[in-house]
Structures are given as C-alpha cells and as structure tokens.
C-alpha cells in the first residue's frame, strides 16, 4: 500500500502529467467558450438543425446506444492522454535512472512494477473522471443560458455517468498499456511507437485485408466498450462485455510480459 501511494505521488509530480492535465483544462475552457458563443441567440431548432447534436443541448452530451455526443469526443483525447502519461511516467524512470534507486528500497521487482502499473491506472481513471466532469461543467453556461436542459430523465443521467466511468476505465487501460510497453522498451518513445504503429497501421491493414478478424482488434473492442452497444457498419456482432473481456485479456498479457521482462532483465550496464 505504501509503495502504491509513493508511486501515485511520484506519477503526479511528473511534468508530463501536469502538462497533460493543464492542456485538458485549457481545452475544456476553450470548448465551453466556443459552445457558448456558437449557441448565443439561436433557438433550439437552429441548434439541432439537420439532426445535429449541439453541446448547448444537455441531452446531446451523451446519446445512449449510439455513443455520440460531446462526451464521446473527450474520450479519444483522454485515452491518448492516459497512454502518453503512463508511457512517460515509466519511460522517465528509465531515463532518470530512478528505477535503480527504487530497487535499492524495494528489490521485489514484481511488486515494484505492479505497484507502479496500478498507481498509473488508478490515477488515470480518477483524473479522467474529474476532467470529464470539468468538461461537462464547462458546457453548462451554454446549456443553461442559450440551449436546453429538457428531457433529462434518470435513465439519461445513469447512462451519462456509466459512459464517464467507461471512459475512465479506457483511460486507465491506456495508462497501464503505456507503462507496460515503456517498461518493455525501457523508454517512452518505444511505447508510443508500438501503440500508434499497431493501431494506426497494422489494424488498418487487417481491417482492409481480413474484415473477419476486425472483431479481435483493439479499435473495435474499445469502441464497443465506450458505446456499450452494437457497432454500425461492421460485419460482425459482438457484445460489449465480450469486448471488455477481450481488452482485459490483451492488457493482462502485455502487463504479464512486461512484469516478466522487468523481473528478469538486468538493471544497469557493465562497468
């Protein structure tokens, strides 16, 4: 427990984590201002012209079943933030040599590595939930003064909070993945290159050449978890729970590999 708290404090002190949070806060403020200015003087019909969703209409913050709305936009950035943050926290440890320092205090490597991984995952989830709250709060002035707060039943609120929790979970997964990959490659760049290379390039190729395999891809499964509904325009049917299990399995395998490598490999070079 001590180690977990220490790791969380250290992760929070990382400059990259603070910069990412600051950027997110600036982004929230900017979106809030844009939503307010854009919605000023418009009627509800004008805001929702051609069936578009507008963040000044609270009901449009989250469209249950379709995964649409302002909240879904924030999910992508949070997921990326979690990944970059997690990878940077682990990568910086190797760059600064503090891995050695920590191991002279806690030589049980599995314990040390899993503490760091868990710390990053928990922090990422908490930060993601807090940032989503700030993001939605920044849209409140536009909704209260220019838009609409109508049709908000309990079902919608539960659906919104559940979507926020799922986004927090995905952000945590991103952070855990970042830590694991940066531990495997012993630097931040390796982790980021591996993820972007896989998701942006390899998964695209697989999707094009073998559409039947798309159900096993990260992208499809992550989207399924976020929306918690069947995907449109795909040739397969897959439940969100199966998607969650699939992603959990992938992440567990990568974390296990990182833990094994961290346990076995020497720390430091010959001298």
């Amino acid at each position: 427990m001590n180690l977990l708290v220490v790791e969380m404090r250290r992760a929070l002190h990382r400059r990259v984590v603070r910069v990412l949070i600051l950027m997110a806060l600036i982004g929230c403020a900017a979106v809030g201002v844009i939503a307010f200015v854009d919605s000023a003087g418009k009627s509800l019909a004008e805001l929702q012209v051609n069936g578009n969703h507008h963040p000044a209409v609270m009901r449009d913050w989250w469209i249950a079943g379709g995964g649409d709305g302002a909240l879904s936009v924030s999910s992508f950035f949070l997921l990326m933030g979690g990944l970059v943050g997690g990878a940077s926290v682990a990568g910086a440890e190797w760059r600064a040599g503090t891995v050695t320092t920590m191991l002279t205090w806690e030589p049980r490597r599995v314990r040390a590595h899993l503490s760091r991984t868990a710390a990053c995952g928990i922090l990422a989830a908490v930060i993601a939930f807090a940032l989503q709250t700030v993001f939605l709060a920044s849209l409140l002035p536009a909704a209260l003064l220019n838009g609409s707060t109508a049709n908000l039943d309990s079902h919608w609120w539960i659906s919104l909070v559940a979507a926020m929790l799922r986004t927090s979970l995905l952000t945590a997964i991103g952070a855990v993945l970042g830590v694991a990959l940066a531990t495997l490659g012993r630097n931040t760049a390796f982790a980021l290159a591996a993820v972007f290379g896989w998701i942006a390039i390899l998964e695209g190729v697989i999707r094009g050449l073998k559409p039947g395999l798309a159900r096993f891809l990260w992208g499809e499964n992550m989207t399924l978890i976020l929306t918690w509904a069947q995907l449109d325009n795909v040739s397969f049917r897959r439940g969100p729970l199966v998607a969650l299990i699939t992603i959990a399995l992938y992440v567990s395998l990568i974390v296990a590999a990182a833990t094994l490598v961290f346990r076995r490999r020497d720390v430091g070079s010959a001298s």
Binding site: N2, T100, G268
Partner: peptide, 22 residues
C-alpha cells in the same frame, strides 16, 4: 549506485520523504 538518481521534480525533502514512506 553510480551517479545519484533522484526524482528531479521533487524537492530534497520530498525525495527523502517519498523513499522513507516505503
């Protein structure tokens, strides 16, 4: 071990407290 590897964004006191907490 080798050059001292401490947490650069912590103060000296925070560094020691962070290790002491373990």
């Amino acid at each position: 071990v080798e050059s001292p590897a401490l947490f650069p964004t912590f103060t000296g006191r925070e560094n020691l407290r962070s290790l002491a907490a373990i």
